[in-house]
Structures are given as C-alpha cells and as structure tokens.
C-alpha cells in the first residue's frame, strides 16, 4: 500500500494560490522556498501560484485583508483558506490545502 520512493500528491481540482510576502524579509523568502518546493515536487502542473509583494501593492493588501505576513491564500478550490507563516509545517500546509496522498 505504501510507496515510499515517489510520494505523489493529488488534488481534486487545480490549486489557485496567492502568496503575499513583505519584500525580501527572511520569513518571506522562507515561505516562497517552502511553497515552491512543495508545488514543484508534488503538484506538477496542477497549481497556479502568484507571489505578491505587499510593499509594492499596499492597496491589494487591504483589499485582500492581509494582516499577517507571509500569507498564502488558497483561492480555489473552495473553501478559501489563509495559511499564515513560513509554511514550514509541511503536514499542516498539505492538509490545509486539501491535498491527499495518492494511494
């Protein structure tokens, strides 16, 4: 049942993600690294990721109700989720994004 060598992740639908970061802060860089690794390793083309710098887009930050930085918003599939922090807790990230392991 377990295939340890190639852990494939699947999602029901394509993931639409927005990562709000504050410039080049260490936490932001860490979050970018974490989400990129996760997506590239496991999601292949089943995702869209947009990285937005709130320093450059303060209006957007207000519109999107960004409080914490970094913030990863899962726009689709619903329900909407906001993952705050460096995204270093991979298990929690995977669960919150609604990704399941392929059997």
């Amino acid at each position: 049942m377990k295939k340890k060598e190639a852990p494939k992740l699947i999602t029901e639908e394509k993931l639409v993600l927005q990562l709000y970061v504050s410039g080049m802060s260490p936490k932001s860089m860490e979050a970018i690294e974490n989400i990129k690794r996760l997506c590239d390793e496991h999601l292949k083309d089943a995702f869209e990721l947009e990285i937005i710098d709130i320093y450059k887009n303060p209006e957007t930050a207000a519109e999107q109700h960004i409080v914490f930085s970094p913030s990863l918003i899962k726009k689709l599939p619903l329900p909407k989720k906001t993952l705050i922090g460096t995204l270093s807790d991979t298990e929690k990230v995977i669960k919150a994004l609604g990704i399941t392991f392929k059997k």
């Binding site: 709000y20 504050s22 802060s25 936490k27 860490e30 979050a31 974490n34 709130i54 320093y55 303060p58 930050a61 207000a62 960004i66 409080v67 914490f68 930085s69 970094p70 913030s71 990863l72 329900p79 909407k80 989720k81 906001t82 993952l83 705050i84 922090g85 460096t86 995204l87 270093s88 807790d89 929690k92 990230v93 919150a96």
Partner: peptide, 16 residues
Amino acid sequence: EIEETGEYDLEGIFIR
C-alpha cells in the same frame, strides 16, 4: 480560514 504554519509577522498591518 486561518492556519498557522510557521513564524509570521504583522507586516500586513504595518503596510496598510
């Protein structure tokens, strides 16, 4: 809707 997945700051508030 919120999940804490690591360290964060309130930069969103600062910027707004």
